[in-house]
Design a protein around this nucleic acid. Structure first.
Length: 273
DNA sequence: ACCCAGGAAATTC
DNA sequence: GAATTTCATGGG
């Protein structure tokens, strides 16, 4: 068990269910089970401490990084709140969300699967992908499969996932990553536009999926994924505001606005009469 | 039966 | 080139 004390501005339920990750599930006791970097753990908060049950002490730095515990989200929220009144509401509503540092390939494939799809179904496909092709971890859980493993698969192999037209996108991603044509490690340090262009060499990866991969898989906070919710939110709630206005925390602002908008659809109802 | 879902590719105008 | 259609699958 790894324990982090004096942890603030952290709500695991919001963090896991705000649409950035598809690998965590709530247990009846309020804790969450999930897998990251091939480690199966159960996590919960208690008295401002974050407990990682099943984690080894040697992985302390890994979990610190995964949950981005080095960032003061309270301070980020305050800074964003000063920029615009809507950000004040969004940041307050989304208090507790952290941007996880997920595995790059997992983020890439997860958001390829996400296109024109809904979150429960995305989770189902990702789950079947791991069960079918990921390394078993001995407790009924499975690691996210590697690009190398998936690069050897055929479309028929992926049929049980019921991923539909996205299956061939997954395979193209796996082959280009495993073959070195797309270097995910390089995308961490490449300038933003170049990293985005590199990811978009994959069939099925457009601007939005590339931005999600950069933000959730590589913690590139300048990425600002624009899905239908974000487009509507920016047009309706923040006219004239651009991601650049959020400084170095655009990605965090995006997640706050996204969660706020999805959770309050009434914000977009017609305001006549 | 119909509509939508954290989009992107293929086709058409 | 910009606008529209199609793409598989499942749930409401």
């Amino acid at each position: 068990m790894v324990i982090f004390e004096q942890i603030h501005d952290t709500d695991l339920s919001k963090t896991f269910d705000c649409g950035q990750s598809f690998r965590w599930n709530a247990l009846p006791d309020g804790s969450f089970s999930g897998v990251a970097f091939g480690r199966s753990v159960r996590v919960f908060m208690q008295n401002n401490s974050l407990f990682i049950d099943g984690a080894e002490e040697g992985d302390r730095a890994l979990w610190h990084s995964y949950f981005d515990l080095g960032t003061d989200y309270g301070a980020v929220g305050e800074q964003l709140s000063r920029l615009h009144p809507v950000l004040c509401d969004a940041a307050d509503f989304s208090r507790g969300i952290r941007i996880l540092r997920q595995e790059p390939f997992e983020a890439l494939v997860s958001f390829i699967i996400s296109q024109n799809n809904n979150i429960p179904r995305i989770k189902g496909i990702v789950s079947r992908l791991c069960e079918g092709f990921g390394e078993p971890l001995g407790d009924g859980q499975f690691a996210f499969p590697s690009a190398e493993t998936l690069s050897c698969c055929t479309a028929e192999d992926l049929a049980p996932l019921r991923a539909g037209f996205r299956a061939r996108y997954i395979l193209d991603a796996a082959r280009k990553v495993a073959g070195g044509e797309v270097d995910l490690d390089a995308c961490r340090t490449l300038d933003y536009e170049a990293a985005r262009a590199a990811l978009m060499k994959i069939t099925g990866v457009g601007v939005k999926v590339a931005d999600c991969t950069l933000l959730y898989g590589m913690h590139r906070l300048e990425a600002f994924p624009m899905d239908v919710w974000m487009k509507r939110a920016m047009a309706t709630l923040l006219p004239g505001v651009t991601p650049a206005d959020f400084g170095g925390f655009a990605g965090i602002a995006q997640q706050f606005i996204f969660h706020y908008s999805r959770s309050n659809p009434s914000l977009f109802e017609a305001k006549n009469c």
